[in-house]
Design a protein around this nucleic acid. Structure first.
Length: 841
RNA sequence: GCCCCGGUAGCCCAACGGCAGAGGCGAUGGUCUCAAACACCAUUCAGUGUGGGUUCGAAUCCCACCCGGGGCACCA
């Protein structure tokens, strides 16, 4: 084992000063003790104030890796801190155990996905235990257990009863590799978030959660989360929800219902010279005239073949087809042509846009290519050389000079012009102010096996029929190996003895819905299940949830900034509206850790730069690895393992541990009367550590503990003449005990061992926060700096409560200061008692 | 293109608008050793990405730019 000295047996006697810290033996020693003591069992009936420490539960792929080690080490600092501060802490762990990797493994190995899943869960469970995180294992859960997913199904049915789960036919994102649909959030740069394949569109009837109904509230509550959530998560969610304000405007079409468009710039309506609808929308199909139908269909089919990547590409050529109809501008009465194009999105707004080339660059390009008229409606600034202009400026051509129109907004600024136009449209009944969101409803159906079956039966006569609540859980049929191969429809559809059922309403032949739910549904409420993991009368015990929710901290990866975190917020709000929760937000505070990389790059098999957590633990021990991860830097920063020194961490732990063997005073020795300098250092460290932890500045906290260890070492070793006090001084015991308790947040094995060597009973994890005499925090004297023109010229030892006038007098009398002033007239003296005096000459 | 976050010793990182350095790594020298490794002791090193501004005083506040990371991006 590198870094640890194992002297031969015969030398041991001469090495009493250099005791050996046997990492492995210490680890083996304490695990069974903790199992016995169960120090982290959360009790909601406890009179202590409660804290809920939550960390994102893992997907069970293989064993734990460096990423898991980092996030749980950071998380554990907070959880253990809260225990030490006297809180009752809920710190649960479970597994997000439905999902594709298990299914793919099952196909490869001709087995059941559960085999892979539960084997990995056991492996990870054992690893977590050895890793010494303060989880309450009695609350362990797996989302793939029927007793868990019965409640996922229950929630789905409840949501459906509230109109929040519905089925619709619509073009959806399709991953040709995983052979399943994807939610908007799972398409990143036109690629499948999971496998990276180019996503295409398909027209399918699928289940959706109506998250858009909560769009405004999801947005508004971000204001309250802003102080305690990472900025980047809050902004990412704001961007994702994408609220905009504008108007719906109706354009009359002969022989058809009016076309309603959404626009954020109703004030530019005088510049509307054409109209564009999404080529893949039903509206386009309806509007197209017989004469243009052939051209339209050719164009539409071309676009449909394209992947998301191609459609999203910003340098694609402008394209479109004239639909052959005209619409009437509701303000000017002008007839304008209606086109179909691919730059308008079918599922945003109304799928139709008023073309204002003077105010929108896309419209400008379209008008230029198609030879359509361009009218500017906002005065461009002096020297403007661009094409379209959407900035601030007075309205012009609204109406054009000499034209008589029922509305005149010429000269108004953008905001006033908008308001005037909306007022006019509303009076005329041809439009109204409107708000739009970028957020779409959450597509939750998946054409795969290893997920929660959707508890719906499709009957020809009765339509969609819910599986009765007393028949939940609706369990998955036993499929394995080749049965699970992706075929474009769910594997469940082929399990005829499962799919074919009698309709619960009419008893006639019917079929079960053969899709399963997106696994993000499972993880949208697991933090509630933890509050009462074995509850059988509902997804969770409302009273228990009241006791624990919201989670006081949620630690996890920033990759979930929109997906999981938005969905979980949505579920929480719905459950609140169902009367099951008091809170509208699930996570009061959040901490995102960085990732562990190696040699400047993400660890990956292809780069061959992976670092095995198991190897690191074997080489340096759990505590040293945890300490390294916590000490590496601010939690949000990435950690380059190549820059880290677990050996250095181990060295420090040994130094700390050695202190506990050097203390010679008896346990319980009162610290009063001990060496004051060391007592002050201890008091400061403990005091500051609390502030640092609460600010998530764990790396600095560790540094402070290192300082205290160094100070204690010196106090023991140095002769009295050089500030030492010897191992028998009560201050040494006080400092060492503080070190043990502070270290218990990061290095629980070492801390436990120290605690025992100090003559205490286990477990240090519940020893309580070190008591600090507040008097020791007040310094007897402080160093005041005297500056001339901002440059330090002298230092003075002064009382901390010195008056400004006294300090000024003292400073100006100092010989070094007098010399530095050198007889020049003093123009100004700035005094910041007790730390600083600045003399301006 | 728009919006966030960040640039401090060789490296990882500290520093209420007030002495740029807390801690660690590395390096160098020493103690120990036949020698080395380990351990221990000591020493070393930047003026804070660039340019302006505010201030008695700026790593810290403001503006512009450069570099790195992230989010959104035909969202009308």
């Amino acid at each position: 084992m590198p870094g640890v000295d194992h002297p031969p047996e015969h030398e041991r006697d001469e090495m009493s000063e250099q005791e050996t810290y046997d990492v492995e033996a210490v680890q083996e020693k304490w695990l069974p003790v903790w199992d016995e003591l169960q120090p982290f069992r959360a009790d909601e009936d406890s009179p202590r104030e409660k804290k809920y420490a939550l960390t994102m539960f893992p997907y069970p792929s293989g064993d734990l890796h460096m990423g898991h080690a980092e996030v749980t080490a950071l998380h554990d600092v907070v959880a253990r801190y809260w225990w030490q501060r006297g809180f009752e802490v809920l710190n649960p762990m479970g597994w997000d155990s439905f999902g594709l990797p298990a299914e793919n493994a099952a196909i490869r190995n001709d087995e059941h996905p559960a085999t892979y899943t539960y084997a990995n869960i056991e492996t990870q469970y054992e690893s977590f235990k050895r890793y010494g995180i303060s989880f309450d294992w009695s609350r362990r859960l797996h989302t793939s257990d029927p007793e868990y997913y019965r409640w996922t199904q229950w929630l789905f049915l409840k949501f459906r009863e509230r109109g929040l789960a519905y089925r619709k036919n619509s073009p959806v994102n399709w991953c040709p590799n995983d052979q399943t649909v994807l939610a908007n959030e799972q398409v990143v740069d036109g690629k499948c978030e999971r496998c990276g394949a180019d996503v295409t569109k398909r027209e399918l009837t699928q289940w959706y959660f109506k998250i858009t109904e909560y769009a405004q509230e999801l947005l508004d509550c971000l204001d309250d989360l802003e102080p305690t959530w990472p900025t980047r998560v809050v902004t990412a969610q704001r961007n994702w929800i994408g609220r905009s304000e504008g108007a719906h405007v109706d354009f009359a079409v002969e022989g058809h219902d009016p076309i309603t468009v959404y626009t954020t710039r109703p004030d530019t309506i005088f510049g509307t010279t054409f109209m564009v609808v999404a080529v893949d929308s039903a509206l386009a199909e309806e509007l197209v005239t017989d004469g243009q139908r052939a051209a339209f269909e050719t164009y539409r089919d071309e676009i449909r073949k394209e992947t998301e990547i191609e459609r999203l590409s910003t340098d694609r050529p402008t394209s479109g087809v004239d639909l052959g109809v005209t619409a009437t501008n509701p303000v000017t009465g002008t007839q304008i042509p209606v086109w179909a194009t691919d730059y308008v999105l079918a599922d945003y707004g109304t799928g139709a846009v008023m073309g204002v080339p003077g105010g929108d660059q896309r419209d400008w390009e379209f008008a230029t290519v198609m030879g359509l008229e361009i009218i500017r409606t906002t005065q461009t600034p002096e020297g403007f050389e661009g094409e379209s202009y959407n900035g601030e400026g007075p309205a012009i051509n609204s109406p054009a000079p000499g034209v008589d129109a029922p509305l005149d907004i010429n000269g108004l600024g953008v905001a006033e012009a908008k308001r005037a136009t909306i007022d006019f449209l509303e009076q005329r009944g041809t439009g109204k102010g409107a708000v739009n969101f970028r957020l779409r409803d959450w597509l939750l159906s998946r054409q795969r096996y290893w997920g929660v079956p959707i508890p719906i039966i499709h009957c020809e006569k009765d339509g969609e029929v819910a599986v009765p609540y007393d028949q939940l859980p609706l369990e998955l049929p036993e499929l394995r190996g080749a049965d699970l191969k992706p075929k474009g429809v769910s594997p469940l559809a082929a399990a005829s003895e499962w799919v074919d059922v009698a309709c619960p309403t009419c008893g006639g032949p019917a079929k079960r819905d053969s899709d399963t739910m997106d696994t993000f549904v499972d993880s949208s409420w697991y933090f509630l299940r933890y509050c009462s993991p074995t509850y059988t009368d509902g997804p969770f015990d409302v009273e228990k949830a009241r006791a624990w929710m919201p989670a006081d901290i949620y630690v996890g990866g920033v990759e979930h900034a929109v997906l999981h975190l938005l969905y979980a917020r949505f579920f929480t709000k719905v459950l609140r509206d169902m009367g099951m929760l008091d809170v509208g937000e699930p996570f009061a505070a959040q901490l995102n850790q960085g990732i562990v990389i190696n040699q400047g790059k993400k660890m990956s098999k292809s780069l061959g730069n992976g670092v095995s957590l198991g190897d690191q633990l074997a080489a340096y021990g759990v505590d040293a690895v945890r300490l390294t991860l916590v000490f590496a830097g601010p939690p949000e920063d990435d950690i380059d393992w190549a820059d880290m020194s677990p050996a250095g961490s181990l060295r420090f732990l040994q130094r700390a541990w050695r202190l506990s063997g050097d203390v010679t005073s008896a346990p319980g020795t009162a610290p009063e009367g001990g060496d004051v300098a060391l007592r002050r250092a201890t008091a400061h460290t403990v005091h500051e550590a609390a502030e640092l932890i609460e600010g998530y500045r764990f790396n600095v906290m560790v540094a402070r503990v290192m300082e205290l260890v160094n100070a204690t070492r010196k106090a023991i070793d140095l002769p009295e003449s050089r500030g030492g006090c010897g191992p028998a001084d009560p201050a040494v015991r006080e400092a060492t005990e503080a070190v043990a308790i502070l270290l218990s947040l990061v290095a629980p094995f070492t801390a436990e061992e120290m605690w025992e060597r100090l003559g205490h009973r286990p477990t240090v994890a519940r020893a309580g926060w070190p008591a600090v005499d507040p008097g020791l925090l007040v310094e007897e004297s402080v160093t005041a700096v005297v500056q001339i023109q901002g440059k330090v010229k002298a230092r003075l030892e002064v009382a901390p409560d010195i008056a400004e006038a006294d300090l000024e007098q003292l400073a100006l009398a100092d010989p070094d200061v007098v010399k530095a002033i050198d007889g020049r007239p003093v123009r100004k003296v700035i005094v910041r008692a007790p730390k600083l005096v600045n003399v301006v000459v």
